[in-house]
Amino acid sequence: MHTRLVDYAALTATQQQHVSAIEVHPEQLPFCGDMYCALNSLLAKPSPGVKGFALLADDFPVAFLLLKRPPCLPHWADEHSATLHALQVDRRQQGRGFGKACLQALPAAALEAWPQIKALELSVDTDNVAAMGLYLGLGWVDSGEAYKGRVGYERRLRWVFGRATVDTAEM
């Protein structure tokens, strides 16, 4: 199966409709939110500091994520980074490696969108064991700092360009 991470703006109307139907398992909602909120933050007040990306598997949307840059960065992020938000793999597609495929394609997509960035950053709830394992397993580095987030304590993870490469083997 061929996967690729595509800017939401480049999707066809049918693909955008399929993105809006992406759902996660109810227990994942506190960690990533739902698609309505993710698309609302992308489309309600368009900003050059927010981009949405869909992971296409054979041209069908199976996952979605947001990237943010100034002026939309969270308070904990470095101004030279882009931050990852709302990573959602459709519940009907989970367990097939699509979250990993998103993260593997993310550095190239982020640099294409914003060539000046030096790193990617994210914040992940410490109780989200699956996500922590995925990020750390792909080379994201824990900053060592935790802070009180919406659900519980969150860790900040960072991917620095030029430090290492992500395995981009196709799924």
Rank of each mutant, 00 (worst) to 15 (best):
P30R: 05
F31R: 00
F31M: 05
D34T: 00
M35V: 07
M35D: 04
Y36L: 09
Y36G: 01
C37Q: 15
A38G: 03
L42A: 01
L42Q: 02
L43F: 06
A44H: 14
S47D: 06
G49K: 11
V50A: 07
V50N: 07
K51Q: 13
K51S: 14
F53K: 01
F53G: 00
A54L: 14
A54G: 12
L56W: 04
A57Q: 09
D58K: 01
D59H: 12
D59A: 09
D59F: 11
D59T: 12
F60L: 15
F60S: 11
F60M: 14
P61S: 02
P61Q: 07
A63N: 05
L67K: 05
K68A: 07
K68N: 12
P70T: 09
P71M: 11
P71T: 04
P71I: 05
C72D: 15
L73P: 06
P74G: 12
P74M: 07
W76A: 06
A77D: 04
H80Y: 14
S81E: 07
L84W: 04
L87G: 07
Q88A: 13
Q88P: 05
R92I: 10
Q93A: 15
Q94Y: 01
Q94R: 08
G95E: 08
G95S: 07
G99W: 01
K100P: 05
K100C: 10
K100G: 11
A101S: 11
A101H: 05
C102L: 09
A105T: 10
A105S: 13
L106K: 02
L106I: 03
A108N: 09
A109L: 01
A109M: 08
A109I: 08
L111W: 13
E112S: 15
P115M: 06
Q116P: 02
K118A: 14
K118Q: 11
L120V: 02
L120A: 01
S123M: 05
T126V: 14
D127M: 12
D127S: 13
N128Y: 05
V129T: 13
V129L: 13
V129Y: 04
A130F: 02
Y135D: 02
L138K: 09
G139L: 03
W140K: 04
W140A: 02
S143C: 05
S143M: 06
Y147G: 07
Y147F: 13
K148V: 12
G149L: 10
R150W: 11
R150G: 15
V151F: 08
V151C: 06
G152S: 08
G152P: 00
E154Q: 08
R155K: 10
R156T: 12
R156H: 10
L157Q: 00
L157T: 06
L157N: 02
R158D: 03
V160F: 13
F161N: 05
G162P: 05
G162H: 09
T165C: 12
